[in-house]
Write a protein that binds this DNA or RNA. Sequence first.
RNA 1: CGGGGUGUAGCGCAGCCUGGUUCAGCGCGCCACGCUUGGGACGUGGAGGUCGGCGGUUCGAAUCCGCCCACCCCGACCA
Length: 477
Amino acid sequence: MADTITTRAKDFPEWYQDVIRAADLAEPAIVVKGAMVIKPNGYAIWEKIQRELDNRFKATGHKNAYFPMFIPESFLKKEAEHVEGFSPELAVVTIGGGKELEERYVVRPTSETIIGHFFNKWIKTHRDLPMLINQWANVVRWELRTRMFLRTSEFLWQEGHTAHATHDEALAEVLRMLDVYADFAENVMAMPVIRGEKTMNEKFAGALKSYCIEGLMQNGWALQAGTSHDLGQNFGKAFDVKFQNLAGQSEYVWQTSWGVSTRLIGGLIMTHSDDAGLVCPPKLAPYHVVIIPIFKTPEEKAATSAVGAKLAEDLKAKGLSVVFDDRDDRPGSKYFEWERKGACCRVEIGPKDLEKKSYAFKRRDVEKKEFAPLDGAVAHITGQMEQMQKDLFNKAKAFRDASTKQVDSWDAFKAMHEGPGGFASCHWCGDGKCEAQVKEETKVTIRCIPLGNPKESGACIKCGRPSAQRVLFARAY
RNA sequence: CGGGGUGUAGCGCAGCCUGGUUCAGCGCGCCACGCUUGGGACGUGGAGGUCGGCGGUUCGAAUCCGCCCACCCCGACCA
C-alpha cells in the first residue's frame, strides 16, 4: 500500500516519520538544512495549542509582545554562562544590505538578552512590577542533528519573560507557569507529565534553577515538554535592570522565563498514535468527525447524503470540526485515509441506517464499530469526544506508570535501559560527576528531581554513596 | 563533526556486482471513462523520472571511479 506505516515494534523512529508523512503534518524542508515545513494539518494542531495556551497566559495576567529576531552579538556575551551555553548553536548575520555590519547580529536562539535590554528601559520602580510578558516567535539553533518537530534548526515557540520585586515572587511565578504547562499537557494534550527540577548539569544556561515537565513516549524515552526557569538576578545584573523599592533603594529585579515549542506536536504523536497512523485527542485534533455516506444508487446517495450533511451542520454548530466525505471512492478506502490522518471518529450513514434511523460510529481509539440511533446523535458524539479525551489520557498514564520502576541495582538499571526503557526512580548522591558517568556509560540522563519528592535515605545507584532522595532517570530526546 | 545506512515517478522498491535491446521498470497512489460503494474493488486507457548533484573513465554510464549534497540511525550538543 502507499503510505505504508512501519510498525512501532519494528522501527520506532521510522514509524514516527511515517506517521508524520501519512497524516500530512510536515515534511523536511531539505532545501534549508535542518528545517521543516509544517503543513496545514500539522499547523492546525499548533494553532490549537497556541489558542489554549494563550488563553491560559492571559488568564494569569500575561500580555503578548514581540521583540526583534536579530540580537546584537554583544548582548549574548553579557551573561557569561548564557553565552557559553548558546554560542555553539548560533546563526550570525554579518552582512546587511550588501555591507558588512558594524556589529554582528545573532538570530535569536532565545530572547532573555534582548528582553533584558528593554526591561532595563521599562522598569524604574516597584510600581512597574511585576512585568509579565509573553512572546510567540520563531527561534534558531544551529543543530547538528535534527528530527521533525523534536529538534529542527528553526522552530516555533512561546517564551514568557517576567520580572519581579522579590525572589519569592519570581519563584512563585516559575512554579505557577510550570503548573499551567502541566495542566495543559494533561488536560488538553492528554499527555501525563512529571513536574520536576532539573539538575545543575541539565539546567538552562544562565538560570539559577530550571524546572520542567517530562513525558514518557511509547518507546520508553522521556521528552522534556516544557521548561520554566528561575533566572534569579543573573540577567538583571547583566542588563542593569533595577527598580526603586519601597524604601527608596535601588535593587536588581528577579526574573523568570518559560517556554514550550512545536516539539509538543512530536510528543503528541509519540504519546497517542498507533500503527495505523495519527491518534489525536479531541481538544487538539484537526478533524473531529468524518461523515461518510454509503450508497449504491443515485437515490441512496441523495438520501444518505442529505442526512449526513444535516448531521455535519448540527455537529459544526457544536464547535466540532467535521468533514462530510462524499467523494466517489470506496468507503473502506476512506476509512483508512481518515484513520491515518487522526480523525477522532467516523460516522457512516447507509441505506440500512435510513430504515432503522441509526448510524454507524467508530472511534479512532476504540476497536469496535457500533450502531446508534440517529436521534440524539449530536449528544452521543460530543459525549464520545469528551470520553475519548479522558480515555487517551488514562491509557497514556497507565503506560507511563507501568514503565516507571524503582531501581536499586546497577545491573537492573542497565538491563532496564537496554530493554524497554522507561523512568527509573533511583537514588542519586547529588554529584554531577556521577550523573555524567551514568550518561556516558548508558546514555541515560536524570530527567528531573520530581517536585514534592519524598525524602528517603538510600545509596546512589552509581557510586553507592549516601543519597537523600530518588530522582528520575531515562533515555531522552 | 565522527561512525553506519540510504538516495531510481507522489509513496514503497527492483535493476548496479558481470556498462550496451528485459534498462527507464514494478506495486500502490494519481487522471479519464465505465462499473462499483457497510473495512484498502475491478476493467480499459493515460499522465508522471535531468536514475540526488558535479566531474571523470568509455564508442556507450542508473550501472565503474572521484568529489560534493541531502535525509535516516548511533554518538557529542540541545526545546
